[in-house]
Amino acid sequence: MLNKLNSFLDKYYISPIVNDTGYNIVNTFSWAIIFIFAIILLKKYFEKQNQIIDKKFLFALIPYICFGAVLRVLNELNVYSTILLITPLIYFLVFFICFGLLIISNILEQKTKIDYWKIWFSFGLFLLGLAFIKIFLFFKNYKILFVWLGILCFFLILILLLKYVLKSKFFSNINIATLMSHLTDATSSFLAISFFGFTEKHVLSRGLINYAESLNLVFYNSGAWIMFPLKLIVVGMCLHIIDNENLTKKDRFYLKIIIIILGLAPGIRGLFQLIVFT
């Protein structure tokens, strides 16, 4: 019985982390439960501490998202060789760094009268700067950055045109930012899989890409294009539900920040993978 348990844990949890082989149905479901539980606990903590969740909070958070993404690629480059920098453990590491510095920033705000988000942002920017200096030494494919930005600009223009034509409240600034954060992930995945032979590690995305290819719905011999409509539809539906639920403005913003993190983190990581590995 114990051997079966050890074998199960090794197959679905330990081996995918140690060997960095990606996700499977079992660990995806498990990490999702832990993630949801963490979101609930964090929300309760913020409410207890009267933590302000607004655009300034999101702005100050962005360097930490990028820092985690760059740190992950540095691990793949063997600059830092530790299991803590492999997904999903890196999420826990970056969270504790980010959360710890948020607490320190709130304390410093009381002592210095400087807005907490400015202090928190400065800490994050410093960490990102250190990581960027390291990864800059490995830059090879600068051109892919402009291709990546070009695709994102195309979708941003498309979304802004829809906003102008439809005049819908759905296209608020935060909703557009949320959609664009996930389009960074879709763009990175599309370029990496279609043109450079990368593989998708997430179970659902990999399944949809394989399904598209089985139907011969391919673009540049790949079904990775499906990531664009997938992201727009799924994220769009989530935003629609959040906007129409009986939630406070703060709760809506909090949930949208979570969704942004889930898109922007892998999107930025994918971009740096393209720059240093292709």
Rank of each mutant, 00 (worst) to 15 (best):
S194C: 11
V79E: 03
A212F: 14
I25L: 15
F8R: 07
Y254Q: 01
S105M: 01
V18R: 12
N19V: 06
L108F: 08
Y12G: 08
V70H: 06
E245Y: 12
L179Q: 02
I176R: 04
L230V: 10
C98K: 05
F277V: 09
S194W: 05
I275T: 08
V70Y: 02
P63Y: 02
K43L: 13
I53P: 01
V79P: 00
I34H: 10
K111F: 04
L161I: 14
Q49N: 13
N141R: 11
L108Q: 05
F8G: 04
I157A: 14
Q273H: 12
G270N: 02
F67A: 09
V18H: 08
D115P: 09
A212G: 11
I275V: 15
L274P: 01
C66K: 05
M180T: 04
I25E: 15
P88I: 07
V234L: 14
L215R: 14
F136E: 15
L271M: 10
G150H: 05
T248V: 06
S172I: 02
M180H: 03
Q273F: 08
I36F: 14
W120S: 01
P266N: 02
P266W: 00
F155R: 13
Y164R: 15
F139K: 10
E47P: 05
L262F: 14
A69N: 06
A265V: 14
